[in-house]
Design a protein around this nucleic acid. Sequence first.
DNA 1: TCAATTCGTAACAACAATAATTACAAATCC
DNA 2: GGATTTGTAATTATTGTTGTTACGAATTGA
Lengths: 141, 141
Amino acid sequence: MNTSSRFSTTIHILTLLAHMTPERVNSEFIAGSVNTNAVVIRRLLSLLRDAQVVSSRSGPGGGWQLDQKPASISLLDVFKLVEHHDLLPLPAQEPNPKCPVGQNIQAALEGHIQDAQSAFELSLSHVTIQDLLEDMDLPDL
Amino acid sequence: MNTSSRFSTTIHILTLLAHMTPERVNSEFIAGSVNTNAVVIRRLLSLLRDAQVVSSRSGPGGGWQLDQKPASISLLDVFKLVEHHDLLPLPAQEPNPKCPVGQNIQAALEGHIQDAQSAFELSLSHVTIQDLLEDMDLPDL
DNA sequence: TCAATTCGTAACAACAATAATTACAAATCC
DNA sequence: GGATTTGTAATTATTGTTGTTACGAATTGA
């Protein structure tokens, strides 16, 4: 399986940051909520920092904060930032070009795979971090 | 990455079988078109045989044939038979239940992930092996 | 009946990706 | 200056996929 849980983990982190705003939160604390290692958190968040979704600061009192409004961050934005593969990859080995089917199948299939991925992405684009926060009905800080 | 090319490979195989109908084709021949090992082909096709999409026969002149009409096999049927993972898995480690966000995030997220996967699957369901055959405009046997 | 062909499937190796972990330099704060 | 925290490289463990070898079972046809 092509199983990466980066997407779900990153959504968890961003929801937590949104909930904690305007507090700054360090990677150790986030790791405690996600149940993983702080380096895993820093690695994921560094991808989001490059896209100016979050920012970080070193030193005491340092940590991470959200730099965009929760309502302006969609699940699709996160998906594109942390998942680098196509949902349904073509085989690494090219088919045999001497076979009429092998020669044509990938071009015929590719468009349909792209359509399905677009439908998937469109669905993700309709949901934001703000929506998740509202769904969760969290207690105030 | 959750990268499996089983889907694309299986679509290739089924399109080839549809094109060759009513000939029976052995796994060595199919492997030549797909550019892989015959055992890989037999492994994939055994999944489809369990679902009565194809049938096989041992011995000389044996091999594989399609048991359903190309127009009745959708890309979604194949996806469900050969890909066993969710497109966006939740993390293997459960979040910390003592954190209000950790406790609630998975339930809040799961529905939206399911919606996206459903959109993906609906798109795949609209295309059949027959559609691919027609797209490819192959020469007669 | 026998030899050749083909499937069915287990076992193993090669490779790649993810995740967890350790380590330590750089930045920041007080 | 000491404590805290990030940034990131390196390493390991684990898992999944793919390719390969091997061999028994089924089938065909002479």
